[in-house]
Structures are given as structure tokens and as C-alpha cells.
Design a protein around this nucleic acid. Structure first.
Length: 587
DNA sequence: GCCGTTTTCGGCCCGACTGTTTTCAGTCG
């Protein structure tokens, strides 16, 4: 049997195919088709093998007859003829050149054909020897830019995508600085940052101002700017010291709506929106909606106007990924997305009883101050030694403190006594059933053995989900963004079992995790499941991370009703206490 | 290569900036 590919690996193969076809000079639309298919496969909430077996590959947007056949060939035989052929034809060094700024497919093809250059090293030598400048479309300036680009790539001065949480403080710093510039009328961070995507490729800022010069000047001379990549009259790009690129566009306030819409993206959403506009007789750009027939410009000062004039309900930024949101807006079936104000409590909070940094009282006061009605205390269970997990005896002692703080805080807020219980390597839980039964709510999670094989990991999760006293599965995949992949498991089976047993799946709001990922969260909802959004706070300040989790839920199209910590306490507890009945019915 | 309340063929979003150019190609988003 052919080896198993992940969705990610298959997406990468099509991405490489697109790069190689592009260098070969294939028509751009074909290249775009492979890229789009790759993007949608990477963002799939389902295992592509399941779709393959169901004969449903064509339900993936951008997958038609030809690409379906190629996926089938790959999954059946473990090889893809087209891919192997292209790899034989196109030296791999040419693909590496794509990372160098200003080296696109045409220029790569030129140096390859005219000078026989096939590696970055050869490109560097040719540039140093002044051999590039005489090529058609090249010149002395471009030659030195290419050399600088090679150097930047080598010294890893060019960052790939960074986790949203890492980009957050940088964006705030830049926003603060731009806010101080005189004459700035409106200001926003756009792009994938505004869409709250889990990783950010670059930072995009939009400013409305009378005098673009002053804003551009301030932006390009910020202390955290390493180099200015380009600076025009309405657009500047810089590379920040950490390697992240930041772009700024300045426009007049009257065009704010179209500009913000354009700059927020995503590219796929914009393409689809602009196609939709054309069908309705408008050409849409960042400047205006233009009637195609008369050339008349309609200026939109707000995004709401843009969508309204196109006959669409307003589409929140988190949904703008080209995954059906325009059709939904057209038919008036966009979900009413969950907001931070909908939340009534935080369902994963630690204290100094295990590895937290604050007392139960301090955590509870902070939670109450946020307007919550409840908080689930979830210190670690005994086997997690590194986190000073609690023995059953300590857990009983802790209950007394919970009761005393509850009495102190009075009505209107309640600390629920719970625990974050290890799902052990054999699938059993880290406390005996009678201990679990004594808790208000039980959160179960995996911290060790994430690298077990797929069948074993899946079995562990299923065992926990079918346990009558487990109510929430925390940070399910165990991934750490930019550091560690999530566990390899049959997520479809896990999400389905969770939905059937009414086991809640956590969206962990910590920006290092964001787990469940948005695609799996959306699939969980499709399967009829319910989620919670929790911070996993280890200090009072970390309760504020909740907005990252809300963003993931919104990107998963979640309505408030499907997020269990929007429920009143009584409903939440009733739901939990009904679980043993649901488990029995299913087994 | 994908896709369809203009189409199963003929379209496929729109614009800024740079450098190499006498009017535009390439890259990028």
C-alpha cells in the first residue's frame, strides 16, 4: 500500500507543480488553478482520504476533473506522474530562487535559459561577476537587489509566516506610532491580521489622511524598520527587524470602505467579490465601485456600503476566505457569529495549586471583573509531575478552598471545581471514576505521547470522549504554532464521536495554540458538535487572551448557541449531567 | 485547469511600484 500523505503534503505538491509550471511559462490561469486547489486542500477541515473514498474530491473548491484525477493517482499509487516529470525537467534550485525578492518565474526562466543557472549559488556568482545586467529586462540596479535578496534569505532576515500572537504586539506598536501622525483621519490594520488568521504573512496598514507624505515618512522611519523595500506616493513596504514585512497604503477618507475591504482580503475573497460585482455591472477596486457601462464612480466610505451596494449582507473579516461566504451573504444565510460579549465564563483556568501563578481567589476575582458568571478551575491531575499535578487528596482539599472563595464572592459568580485530567498513554484517565464524579466538570487532555501512531492516538481520544464523566477535551490536537505539529489522528472520527456523545471540544485561546484549529472547529460544527472557548489562563492577565479564541470560533462560522460557555450556568451543568445517558445510548 | 441566473467554450480582479524602458514587463499583494 502506498504511504499515507497528509493534506498539507498534498497541498505542497500542487504548490510545487504550480511553481514549476510557472517557470515553464505555462498560462497563468492554469498555474492559478493549481495554487487555488493547493490552498483549499491545505485549509480543508477533513482528511482528504475520506473525501477520496467517498468520491467527493470534486466538492473541494478548485478541484475539477483533471486535479481530481491527479489526487486519485497520488493516493492510489503514491506517485504523481506529472510531478515526477516536472521534477526531472526543472532543477530544484530554481524553486529555491522563488524566495528571493524580485525573482519571479520570468526572471528565473531567463537566467536558466540564457546563462544555464540552476542554483542560488550560481545566481550569486553571476550577479557578482556582473553577468546579469545584460540580460533582457535586467539591469545593474536589479543585479544588486538580487544580491541583497540572496543575502537576506541566507541570513534568515526574511520571515515566513509568524503566529498571530507574535505579530500582535508589533501591530499595536505600529498602530500607536501612526496614530500620532498629524492629519491621520482613520487608521486600521488589515490583511490576514484583521481576519485573525492563525499565522500572519505580513502586516498591512491602511490610513486615511489628507497628507500621505507625513504618514509614509513616519512609517518608513519607525525604529523597528530594518529596510525600506519600496516607497511610492500611496504605498510603502518595509521589512521589520524580525523579518516580517509591513505594508502601508494611504487613501482619502471618502474611499475608506473600498480600500479597507480590498486591503483586508483574502485574495480569494476579493477575486470572488470582484467577479460578483462584475456580474452586477460594477467593477470593484480599492478606490471605488465603478459602473461598467457609464464609468460612474460610487465612493464608499464604509465597508458596510460596499457589501450593501453589491446586494450582500455584511461579511465579517473572519469569514473572508473564499469558502462560501459570498453565496451565504447573497442568500442571507450568514451566521450570527459569536462575540466576546456572548461569553459567560472561562472553562479552563489554573491556580498555584498546580502550575498557575495566582491563587484561586485572584483568578476568580479577575474572571468576575471581566463580567463572567462562572469560571472552571482546572488544575492538573496527578501524573503530570512537571505541572505539580494534584493527588485525589489534594483535590479534596482544594474543593474546600473553592467553596470558601465562592462564599466570599457571593451570588452572581461561581467557581466550578474541575480538573484538567491527563488522558494516559493507554487511554485511561488519571483519576478514578469516583474522583471524576465528584467534580463539577471534567476537562481531559493529552500532554504526552502525541507522537504515538495514528490508531493509538485516535483510540485514546475516543476512550476519553466515551467516558461518562469527561465533559471537555482541551487543546485537542496538541499543536504549538510554529513549533510543533498536532497529533496525527482520525479527526473525523473524533469530531463525530464528540458530537454524538455531547462531549465539548475546546478552542484553546492561547495564541501559541489556537487549538482546535479553525478548519477542524468548522467541521466539528458541521457534524453537529458543540465547542467551548477557554484561555487556559495561568495568571489573571491571561484571561484577556480570550479574544484570540473567539476569533477562531468566528472563523469556524460559530454561532453563540454552539459555544457552551455562552450558556447560563444551569444549562451548562445540565448538559454535563446528561452525558452518561447519551454515552449509554450510543454504545 | 476551473467553471456557469450572460456561457459546456471562453472567459478568468485590479492596481502600485520599480527598473528598464521610449510605452511596458515583471513582481507583488
Amino acid at each position: 500500500m502506498a504511504r499515507r500523505f497528509t493534506n498539507q503534503e498534498i497541498a505542497e505538491i500542487f504548490e510545487h507543480i504550480a511553481d514549476m509550471l510557472e517557470i515553464q511559462g505555462e498560462i497563468p490561469y492554469k498555474v492559478m488553478a493549481y495554487r487555488r486547489a493547493a490552498e483549499n486542500i491545505a485549509a480543508l477541515g477533513r482528511d482528504i482520504y475520506d473525501l477520496w473514498q467517498e468520491g467527493a474530491l470534486r466538492t473541494i473548491p478548485g478541484v475539477g476533473e483533471a486535479i481530481e484525477e491527479k489526487i486519485d493517482q497520488l493516493l492510489r499509487t503514491g506517485r504523481l506522474e506529472l510531478y515526477e516529470r516536472l521534477k526531472a525537467e526543472i532543477p530544484s534550485g530554481l524553486l529555491e530562487m522563488r524566495q528571493i525578492p524580485d525573482m519571479g518565474p520570468k526572471r528565473i526562466k531567463t537566467v536558466w535559459e540564457k546563462l544555464g543557472i540552476t542554483t542560488v549559488e550560481e545566481l550569486e556568482q553571476a550577479a557578482r561577476a556582473g553577468k546579469l545586467r545584460d540580460l533582457p529586462g535586467f539591469g545593474a540596479k536589479l543585479e544588486s537587489k538580487i544580491l541583497a535578496g540572496i543575502e537576506a534569505v541566507r541570513r534568515r532576515k526574511i520571515a515566513g509566516r509568524v503566529p498571530l500572537g507574535a505579530a500582535w504586539p508589533l501591530a499595536q506598536e505600529i498602530l500607536r506610532a501612526l496614530h500620532e501622525v498629524p492629519g491621520v483621519q482613520r487608521l486600521a490594520a488589515a490583511g490576514s491580521f484583521r481576519r485573525m488568521k492563525e499565522t500572519i504573512g505580513d502586516l498591512d496598514f491602511l490610513v486615511a489622511a489628507e497628507d500621505p507624505e507625513a504618514v509614509m515618512e513616519r512609517f518608513t522611519t519607525l525604529p523597528i524598520v530594518e529596510t525600506v523595500l519600496l516607497k511610492g506616493s500611496t504605498k510603502s513596504s518595509v521589512r521589520l527587524r524580525n523579518g516580517l514585512q509591513a505594508d502601508l497604503r494611504v487613501i482619502e477618507a471618502a474611499r475608506w470602505g473600498t480600500a479597507l475591504q480590498y486591503f483586508t482580503g483574502s485574495q480569494q475573497h476579493n477575486i470572488q467579490l470582484r467577479e460578483h460585482a462584475l456580474r452586477r455591472g460594477y467593477s470593484l477596486s480599492e478606490y471605488a465601485l465603478t459602473r461598467v457601462e457609464s464609468g460612474e464612480e460610487l465612493l464608499c466610505a464604509t465597508e458596510e456600503e460596499v457589501y450593501e451596494r453589491l446586494g450582500l449582507a455584511y461579511i465579517p473579516p473572519e469569514l473572508r476566505e473564499g469558502r462560501g461566504e459570498i453565496e451565504a451573504a447573497l442568500e442571507g444565510r450568514l451566521p450570527r457569529l459569536v462575540t466576546i460579549e456572548d461569553l459567560q465564563g472561562d472553562l479552563q483556568v489554573h491556580s498555584t495549586w498546580s502550575d498557575g501563578q495566582a491563587s484561586i481567589r485572584d483568578m476568580a476575582r479577575a474572571a468576575k471583573a471581566k463580567g463572567y458568571r462562572y469560571m472552571l478551575l482546572t488544575d492538573h491531575s496527578q501524573s503530570l509531575g512537571v505541572a505539580r499535578g494534584l493527588t485525589p487528596e489534594r483535590l479534596r482539599e482544594q474543593r474546600r478552598e473553592v467553596e470558601s472563595v465562592n462564599a466570599e464572592l457571593g451570588d452572581g459568580f461561581r467557581i466550578l471545581h474541575g480538573a484538567e485530567v491527563e488522558i494516559r498513554a493507554d487511554g485511561r484517565l488519571d483519576y478514578p471514576d469516583e474522583v471524576l464524579a465528584s467534580l463539577d466538570l471534567v476537562v481531559a487532555s493529552v500532554h504526552t505521547g502525541l507522537r504515538q501512531d495514528r490508531e493509538r492516538v485516535t483510540a485514546r481520544f475516543l476512550a476519553a470522549i466515551h467516558h461518562p464523566h469527561v465533559h471537555i477535551i482541551a487543546h485537542p490536537t496538541g499543536r504549538l504554532l510554529g513549533e510543533r505539529e498536532g497529533a496525527d489522528a482520525d479527526w473525523e472520527a473524533i469530531l463525530r464521536a464528540a458530537a454524538e456523545t455531547g462531549t465539548l471540544l475546546e478552542i484553546n485561546a492561547n495564541p501559541a495554540r489556537l487549538d482546535l484549529p479553525d478548519a477542524l472547529a468548522r467541521r466539528a460544527l458541521e457534524l453537529g458538535g458543540y465547542l467551548v472557548i477557554s484561555t487556559d489562563a495561568h495568571s489573571p492577565g491571561e484571561l484577556d487572551l480570550i479574544h484570540f479564541g473567539v476569533a477562531v470560533a468566528r472563523r469556524a462560522w460559530a454561532t453563540p448557541d454552539r459555544i457552551a460557555n455562552t450558556w447560563p450556568l444551569e444549562r451548562l451543568l445540565r448538559w454535563a449531567h446528561e452525558k452518561p445517558g447519551r454515552v449509554r445510548r450510543r454504545s
